[in-house]
Simulated scan of single mutants.
Amino acid sequence: MIARGLLLAGLLALGAAASAGGAPPPVPVVSAITGPAMPATLAEFGFFADPRAQLPAAGVIPYRLNTPLYSDGAEKLRFLYLPPGTEARFADDGLPALPVGTALIKTFAFGEGAARRLVETRVLLHRAEGWVALPYVWDEGQSEARLALAGARVPVTTPEGRAISYRVPNRNQCKECHGLNGAVVPIGPKARNLSAAWLAPLVAAGKVNTVPAGADTLPRWEDRATAPVAAAARAYLDVNCAHCHRPGAAASNSGLDLRWEQQDLHALGVMKRPVAAGRGAGAFEFDIVPGHPERSILVHRMRSEEPGVAMPELGKATADAEGTALIERWISAL
């Protein structure tokens, strides 16, 4: 599958063609991104030339992550908007410094082809006072997405055929995953989880300062069967768990640090007793028991769909069977 981010050249050509035909391409509304208001509809931002088809407006760049966050099997359509004349600045393989006026847009969809249903679009806006997270829920007719500060429940069918009540997080719940040291921050587009082939043309276009040495380090999810198991598993934990299980984040009191850069096995949970797991630990003593996934709290909580036990706590209603199998393989090999 071709990475969505590699469509950059095609999007630039689309904008040029529209201009040549006499009709300027649609562009995002800067005041909606940077102003104090919380637009009632997604359309007010102007991120899409065709919202239903998720065709971005001029200057809105699609991208993909090598290893994505699991969200009940939803398809994720990700986009980046940088204000004209600015650039994302990478200093290492982590998150870039993104200028005020940046928007990160992520649409969650279920189904394929004509049957694809857009469920929600989350936007992360970089305003002068910091980052603001806003969730938008698509209507039944797929013509508009409306602001849902209180969150929502939407019945969907997962790719495995399960009917579930999909949870759109409320604005405060967005902070639980995106919170670090009391501030809201992006968590997805780290250089290590972005394709170097996507970054390079953006460097040439002046939208990114460099392709850092650590870019493209995390294995692609579709290559997990052939990638080194430790790398694939650590990438999964970094993307799905480390935004909470790290110093300064929501689950820092657990004592677990599941970031990619963490090398201390005890901090990763190996033979570590839980600090604040409560009943989530079940009958098990250690977060990770080398060679024994069946005795590891980490696997026990990944397998569960019971509130208060299941991990991650937010963002899914189902257990990720493929992700859990990967972590089991890694623990078995320790």
Rank of each mutant, 00 (worst) to 15 (best):
F108M: 14
T158V: 09
W138P: 04
H292K: 15
P28D: 09
F286G: 01
D50W: 08
H243K: 09
G22W: 08
R171H: 05
A145R: 06
L258E: 02
A310N: 10
A58I: 00
P26R: 11
G280V: 02
R246E: 10
L77C: 01
V239E: 04
D238G: 00
R167K: 14
L95V: 01
S31C: 06
P84T: 04
Q173D: 14
A40Q: 14
M38F: 14
A251F: 11
M302Q: 11
S332R: 15
S71H: 13
A17T: 15
P25F: 08
R234H: 02
V185H: 01
G161S: 13
L258W: 03
A232I: 04
V289G: 02
H243G: 00
I33F: 04
G113P: 09
I327Y: 03
P26E: 10
G141I: 01
A57H: 01
N253P: 09
C241F: 00
P24N: 11
V229R: 09
P159E: 12
N193E: 00
Q142G: 03
G21I: 05
P228Y: 07
C177P: 03
S254C: 04
D264M: 07
F90K: 02
A213F: 06
S332E: 14
R192W: 00
R234T: 02
A103M: 03
T86A: 12
I297C: 09
W198Q: 08
A133P: 14
R122E: 05
V119S: 03
I331R: 10
A163D: 15
L77T: 05
I331Y: 04
N253M: 12
P189C: 01
L268I: 02
A281P: 08
P84Y: 12
G280R: 02
V270R: 11
I288E: 02
L65T: 14
G291V: 06
R89T: 13
F108K: 07
E44Q: 15
T34G: 02
V137R: 15
G282E: 03
R146V: 13
L104D: 00
S165N: 15
R259M: 00
N240C: 08
L65M: 14
R162N: 15
G308F: 07
A16P: 05
S195E: 14
E120K: 11
D320C: 08
L6E: 08
T324F: 02
G280N: 03
F110I: 08
W260Q: 04
P293S: 05
R78S: 03
L218N: 00
R146H: 14
L256H: 04
E160M: 13
P307V: 04
A145Q: 06
P36E: 13
N193S: 00
R329T: 09
L11A: 08
R273Q: 15
A267H: 12
